[in-house]
Design a protein around this nucleic acid. Structure first.
Length: 320
DNA sequence: AACAAATTTCCTGGTT
DNA sequence: AAACCAGGAAATTTGT
C-alpha cells in the first residue's frame, strides 16, 4: 500500500548491521522529523510532578541537544564508578522517565557536578536531601539496581542467554536476521520519543505545591502500553508517521507502523525483540479495563476507551 | 514472602 | 498465503 512503509521497513530491519547507528538516524529523520516544533507532553500519567526549581537550568537544553545528537546513553555502558557528571545526569534523567516523574522536578543540573564514585557513596539520606525524600528513595534504589545490573553484564559476560540479545559488537553478528541495534540504541530512541518532553512554559504555569502534589502516593511504572499509544498520538513527530487518527471524532486510530511501535515499546523495557504480535496481545488485555476498545473490522485499528480519552485530554491540556 | 497488576510469550483457531 | 484478531494459559517483572 504505502510506499513509505515498505522502504522504511526494509531500511530498518535488514542487512545493514554495520550501519545500525545511521539507521537510527534515518529513523529519526524519517519518522520523527524535526522536533524543534514539538509541543511538549508530560512523561508521567497521574504521578507527574509539576514544576519545581531550576527552570532556568541551561543544561536542560544541553541534555536535550546531546540526546538528539548522541544515539547512545553512555551511562549504561560505563561502570558507575567511572561516571562523569554527564552520565550521572543521564542516569538521573532516565530514572525520572522510568518512574514517570517529571524531569523538571529534579535538579538534573546538580547531578552534572557529581561523579560516579561520589554517587556510589551516597546514602539514602544523601539522595533524599538532594532530590527530596520520596524521589530520593527511588534514586537510591535505582542506583543499586544499576550497579547490580552492570555487575551481571560486565563481570560475567560469558554470553548467557540475555546478553546475547543485544549484540553490541554490531559487525560480528553475521547471521542476525533482523536488526542489530543495541540496547542503548533502542533506549536512545525511547528517550527521543518519550523523555524529551520538558516544557518550561507549561511548567511554569502550574508550579504549585510541589512537595505534596508531586510525590506520588503510589509509585507506578512508566506509561502503560495504551498510554504510550496515546502519547504517540499526541506527538506531532509520530502522529501522522507511525500512528494516526482514523477518525478522531470516533476516537479510532490506526497503527501505521506497528512493528516500529512495538520495537519502541519493547526498547523501553529492554526487550528490543518485542513483536507487534506480543505487543498487541497486551493491548487486547486493555479492552476490559476501559482503556481501549476493539475495532476488529479494520486491521491495526483501535479505539480509545474512556481512560485513553481522559489521558489524551490530560496530555493536551498539560503538555500544550 | 505472598500478592497483585501489567506485560510478555506461546498458541490454537478464525478472519480479512 | 500473509498478516491480523480473539483470548486462554502460563511465565515474568515490579511494586505493595
Amino acid at each position: 500500500m504505502e510506499p513509505s512503509f515498505d522502504s522504511l521497513e526494509s531500511s530498518l530491519s535488514f542487512e545493514d548491521s554495520l550501519l545500525h547507528s545511521s539507521n537510527i538516524d534515518n529513523l529519526y529523520h524519517t519518522y520523527l522529523g524535526s522536533m524543534d516544533t514539538f509541543p511538549a507532553a508530560y512523561s508521567g500519567s497521574e504521578n507527574y510532578s509539576t514544576g519545581q526549581l531550576n527552570l532556568q537550568c541551561q543544561s536542560l537544553h544541553d541534555r536535550t541537544a546531546r540526546q538528539r545528537g548522541a544515539h547512545l546513553e553512555t551511562f549504561q555502558n560505563v561502570s558507575v564508578s567511572d561516571w562523569r557528571g554527564e552520565e550521572c545526569a543521564a542516569w538521573a534523567s532516565s530514572v525520572c522517565r522510568r518512574r514517570g516523574l517529571d524531569q523538571n522536578a529534579v535538579d538534573l543540573c546538580s547531578f552534572r557536578t557529581l561523579s560516579g564514585s561520589l554517587v556510589l557513596q551516597f546514602s539514602l539520606q544523601d539522595f533524599c536531601s538532594l532530590v527530596g525524600d520520596d524521589v530520593g528513595r527511588l534514586f537510591y534504589k535505582d542506583l543499586r539496581a544499576q550497579v547490580k545490573r552492570q555487575g551481571a553484564d560486565y563481570l560475567e559476560d560469558q554470553g548467557e542467554g540475555n546478553s546475547s540479545i543485544f549484540s553490541a559488537d554490531s559487525n560480528a553478528a553475521q547471521d542476525d536476521d533482523s536488526w542489530t541495534y543495541t540496547k542503548d540504541d533502542f533506549q536512545a530512541l525511547d528517550n527521543y520519543i518519550l523523555e524529551d518532553t520538558w516544557d518550561p512554559q507549561s511548567d511554569s504555569l502550574q508550579d504549585l505545591d510541589l512537595q505534596e502534589q508531586f510525590v506520588p502516593i503510589k509509585y507506578e511504572r512508566g506509561p502503560k502500553s495504551w498510554e504510550f499509544l496515546v502519547r504517540l498520538l499526541a506527538d506531532s513527530r509520530t502522529n501522522p508517521s507511525v500512528i494516526r487518527w482514523e477518525d478522531e471524532v470516533d476516537a479510532t486510530f490506526r497503527l501505521t507502523q506497528p512493528d516500529s511501535i512495538a520495537r519502541m515499546w519493547g526498547a523501553r523495557s529492554g526487550k528490543p525483540s518485542l513483536s507487534y504480535v506480543n505487543f498487541a496481545r497486551g493491548l487486547r488485555y486493555h479492552y476490559n479495563t476501559g482503556a481501549l476498545e476493539a475495532v476488529s473490522e479494520r486491521q491495526l485499528v483501535y479505539r480509545c476507551g474512556p481512560k485513553a480519552l481522559q489521558y489524551l485530554k490530560q496530555l493536551k491540556q498539560e503538555g500544550l
